[in-house]
Design a protein around this nucleic acid. Structure first.
Length: 646
RNA sequence: GCCUGCGUAGCUCAGUAGGUAGAGCACUUCGUUGGUAACGAAGAGGUCACCGGUUCAAUCCCGGUCGUAGGCUCCA
């Protein structure tokens, strides 16, 4: 038998007999870490029980690495499936992939799992782990695999095999009595999976299609050691504390009311401050960038939305029409048709372009009840909307300027983790979800792609997520509880200007159709604020904070002085409250902390005598006694600069 | 919209094997006049989400509706 040469990472090259497995090598040589669960052969994740037949590079890996962790998660999903099959033998298994730090497995069961079921499953998993079953794999021909899964009545696996490429070699993994179709790789024994937890269960559709069978999805997580598991679970708890729905209630920012309706937020005085500040910021930036502000109605005849294509492509997201004098009127789901009307209202020449208009118009969209989610998904939403009408030559610069505006905003808020996504059409949806003009789709998508590349902006592409009238750049962010949302969007419209007969007179006197860029750099104010609440965990920077300052007299004796300070600061435009209850100063401070008020101003005998104030800022322990003038100058500057940290 | 869980005072939550409910915080009043994260006492507060059914009797059991949570689908 011939030998092969294997370069093991962290060791010298060695000769081994052909066909040896990494597992055997682990046992042969000293010093391979005990935590090894998987390996890479020439950079490819490979089962430890695979035979090595040629010279190669071998790297042993534990679950601390991202790749290693993904294998552990995946193997834990299998472990869970085995436990479910033991406890509920009639269950049919489907798929069980890994996600970042989590995994799930979808099961077809007669009745959904209860919480007790989940506990039992977890216990059974523990048992299987203790049994330390070897996980082996085998290659099977398509027919063998089909016969096997038909015999054990795993119809979903049969369906999966039937959909696979005919030439694909199939692998099955076995551990004890449980065998599953899987690409692998996996850890080599169930005993290597020890530190896991079932997180939740819910429903999911087979293959993500709502017309298909409803499956039960069980989510779980798994780590190399108990410390990492505990850390992850703690992080999940911490994330929950930042949930904008929770903080929104604690800080009394917004709420929903049964009698008003789901998805229709009511903004309290505190929450309204956030919106007002956001709007003030946007108005300032837009004025500087040459935008003109407009206002349009919330309600409109259906004809307008026929013309714009909304009734053909967007009706399922619109509220039902109402009859007004025998004519159908709709609540507006977007502002664009009105902006087009405003463009067309007076003749335009090339000298008027780019023509930039903006409006924070409230739109109404029918979101299915189960899709509503705090402020992140609502039915009445204020768009940070605007439209730019420009020539083809101006397109690139205008488009990139909008992208730059996003980044400027993100910088102001200190948002660092985001992803730009070029959302393209899916040819299969032409005519239905998307306007049927394949040539223009292609051209526009290419233009946008080139503009982004030309500006050196990093982006990913996503097919099928375009608007019905054109491709988009969406900026994706992740909320504190891990959900992904589109925060900002920038869309190109190649179709609608023509439908609205929008023209401008070019240099040569001919009438031309402008391009239209839809842009919403702050998305909707509801979602943006929902995101900001989580981003800051309710600890807003001073310029944004609903409650900037509270005045705390040490005792009732100093209430007059405190009242004077309050009035003075309010006159300067600051948001100031006065806590003149007959409480001890410690209690007033505690209450101010709970309300996350940025600055506490304490006044007592000393301050009255010296005509000063004592300033206590959140997160800064030491207090400073200063004149009111120095204090107000300092914070007015901080607010003017919109400083994120103090 | 779909599946499952949940809905008790303003908030966070107890509770009742079916006999119309309780705590802490918040609120109001009184006492206290205090120096950097909870001063003390008293009071007020709820058709137990809503509508039906079973029962002598329903907050509790059953059905429906609405809302909400976790997901799926969808989306700014």
């Amino acid at each position: 038998m011939s030998n092969i040469s294997i370069k093991i990472k962290g060791f010298d090259s060695q000769e081994f007999p052909k066909g040896i497995t990494p597992l055997q090598i682990m046992n042969d040589i000293k010093g391979v870490p005990k935590d090894t669960i998987i390996c890479k052969v020439d950079g490819q994740l490979t089962d430890l029980s695979s035979n090595l037949n040629k010279n190669c590079e071998l790297q042993f890996m534990d679950a601390k690495s991202k790749d290693g962790h993904s294998v552990l998660l995946h193997s834990t999903a299998h472990l869970m499936a085995q436990a479910v099959k033991r406890l509920f033998p009639k269950t049919k298994v489907t798929i069980g992939p890994f996600l970042e730090n989590r995994f799930y497995y979808d099961f077809d069961v007669n009745s959904p799992f209860t919480e007790d079921d989940l506990l039992e499953i977890e216990n059974e998993m523990m048992k299987i782990s203790e049994e330390n079953l070897e996980i082996s794999h085998q290659e099977k021909s398509r027919n063998e695999a089909l016969a096997f899964f038909e015999k054990i009545d795993e119809s979903y696996k049969v369906e999966i095999i039937n959909d696979l490429d005919k030439d694909e070699t199939l692998k099955v993994y076995s551990q004890g009595e449980f065998t599953d179709l899987c690409r692998g790789p996996h850890v080599h024994s169930t005993g290597q999976i020890k530190h896991f937890k079932i997180l939740s269960s819910s429903a999911a559709y087979w293959r993500g299609d709502e017309k298909n069978q409803t499956l039960q999805r069980v989510y779980g997580t798994s780590f190399q050691n108990s410390k990492d598991l505990k850390k992850y679970l703690q992080m999940l708890e911490e994330q929950k504390k930042r949930d904008h729905r929770k903080i929104g209630k604690e800080l009394d920012l917004f709420f929903f009311d049964d009698e008003v309706g789901p998805g229709l937020p009511l903004w309290t005085p505190s929450g309204t401050v956030l919106i007002d500040e956001l709007e003030a910021l946007a108005k300032e930036k837009e004025t500087a960038n040459g935008y003109l502000r407009v206002r349009t109605p919330h309600l409109t005849k259906g004809d307008l939305f026929s013309k714009s294509g909304h009734l053909d492509h967007y009706m399922s997201s619109m509220f039902s029409p109402m009859d007004v004098d025998g004519i159908d009127y709709y609540m507006k789901p977007m502002n664009c048709p009105y902006h087009h009307k405003i463009f067309a209202n007076t003749p335009k020449s090339y000298r008027d372009l780019p023509y930039r208009i903006s409006e924070y118009g409230t739109c109404y969209r029918y979101e299915k009840s189960g899709e509503l989610f705090g402020l992140m998904r609502v039915r009445s939403m204020q768009m940070n909307d605007g439209h730019i009408y420009c020539t083809a030559e101006q397109f690139k610069e205008e488009f990139i300027n909008v992208c730059n505006l996003y980044m400027e905003y993100f910088k102001i808020f200190g948002i660092e983790k985001y992803e730009m996504r070029l959302s393209l059409h899916d040819p299969e949806g032409l005519g239905d979800k998307f306007i049927d003009n394949p040539t223009l789709w292609k051209k526009t998508e290419e233009d946008v792609r080139n503009a982004l590349k030309g500006a050196n902006l990093k982006f990913v592409e996503s097919v099928g997520d375009a608007a019905f009238y054109g491709p988009k750049i969406d900026v994706q962010v992740w909320s504190s509880i891990g959900r992904e949302f589109t925060l900002a969007t920038n869309q190109v419209d190649f179709a609608i200007p023509e439908r609205f007969d929008l023209t401008y007179t070019d240099k040569d006197g001919s009438a031309k159709t402008p391009l239209c860029i839809h842009r919403a750099p702050l998305g909707t104010h509801e979602r943006f604020i929902g995101f900001l609440i989580e981003h800051f965990g309710g600890n807003f920077p001073l310029w944004l904070a609903p409650k900037q300052i509270t005045i705390l007299p040490v005792s009732d004796k100093f209430n007059d002085y405190a009242q004077q300070i309050t009035t003075d600061l309010r006159t300067m435009g600051l948001r100031v409250s006065l806590d003149n209850r007959s409480e001890k100063i410690g209690s007033k401070i505690r209450d101010a902390e709970m309300q996350k008020i940025n600055i506490m101003v304490i006044v007592g005998e000393k301050e009255v005598e010296n005509k000063t104030v004592t300033v206590r800022r959140r997160f800064i322990k030491e207090q400073k006694e200063m004149s009111l003038n120095d204090f107000s100058n300092e914070i007015l500057t901080e607010i003017k600069e919109r400083r994120v940290s103090n």
